[in-house]
Structure formats: C-alpha cells, structure tokens
Amino acid sequence: MAAAEFARAASPFEVFGLETAYALDKEALRRRLLRFSRLVHPDFFATQGDEARRLAEQLSAALNRAHEILANDASRADWIVRHLGGPDESSERAMPQAFLMEVLEWNEALEAARAAPVGSPERATIERLAGELESRRRALFEGIARQLAPLPAEKSAPLAALRKELNAARYLDKTLAEIAALRVTQALSQ
C-alpha cells in the first residue's frame, strides 16, 4: 500500500493487511505492529526533511490508532458494527433486557462496597463482584464473536442486537474500571 493511501485508509483491518473479521490472532497483530512500526516510526526519519518526518508521524499515528481499535475486543466489534451500517451508541442506547436485571444487582453491591469503610466485609465483596463481572464479560464477548462470524449483512437486524450487547460491554468495562480504582485506593490506605 502506498504511504499516503495507508495513512488515509479508514479501515484498521486494511492498515494491518487483515481481512475484516472479529476473530483475531492477537499475537500476530502484535508482531505486525512491531514490524510495521520498524518501517514507519519517526525515529528512523529524524534527520530527514520536514516532509518525510511529517509523513512518518502520520503513518505511525494511523498505525497506532488502528492497533488500538483492533487490540481491544469491544472497540474491534464496535468498529465492525459501524462499518456494516449498524446503529451507533447514540442512536441505540438500550442494553439487553436480561442484562438490565443483573445491572441493578451489581450497582447495589458496588454502592455498598463504596460506602463501606476500607477493610470491612462489604469491601471484600467487590472481589467477588469483579470475578462475576469478568466471567459475564467473557460470556458476552463469546456471544458477540458467534454473531459476528460470519459477518451479518449490512444494515441487518442482528446489528441492532449487537449494539445493545456492546452497550452492556461498555457498562461492564466502566464498572470493572471503577472496581480497579477502588482496589488501588484500598491498597493505598492500608
């Protein structure tokens, strides 16, 4: 791919020379990132002219951005759903019905843990909660992977369902990040 074309390529899969698919060999992706970085990183153009340096910056930024999208399951699925003309998170904000019930329970447990003093039994429950959320997340993405292989047709109904599941995934990630932050503050005050 020519340099300018590469920088413009809208598809992160194209940037990495991969077929558009949810299933991904992460090891291979990492190896490609390292190999491509060796070709375009600005460090190797530092003593060259402004134009070469600017291009290296652009190419490297495009590569890093594409890697960021592909390396994360949620952002990779999100990109595919958009790419196929499915709804984005502002036009489809709902989460799957069954999931909503669980969310209520998790929110309660998290609130209780947050309000409880450090070192109390309520605090210890966040570890259990984290484990539960992690396994729920794994199950969710296994489902997403099944629905994305083979890729649904453009603008088809399954895309709206997938968006709802990705909304659920966003909720899980946000909650897990909050738990991680709680853990750090817990460790800090010990």
């Binding site: 390292l34 970085s37 060796r38 990183h41 460090d43 190797f44 003593t47």
Partner: peptide, 16 residues
C-alpha cells in the same frame, strides 16, 4: 542510545 538510533546508527532498536 536513542541519539544513535535517531542519527541513523541502527534500526535494531525501536522505542514506542
């Protein structure tokens, strides 16, 4: 080391 890389001394090392 990084100065060596940046002046074209080696392509074996890359810092990200």
């Amino acid at each position: 080391v990084q100065a060596h890389v940046l002046t074209g001394g080696t392509r074996d090392i890359l810092l990200m």
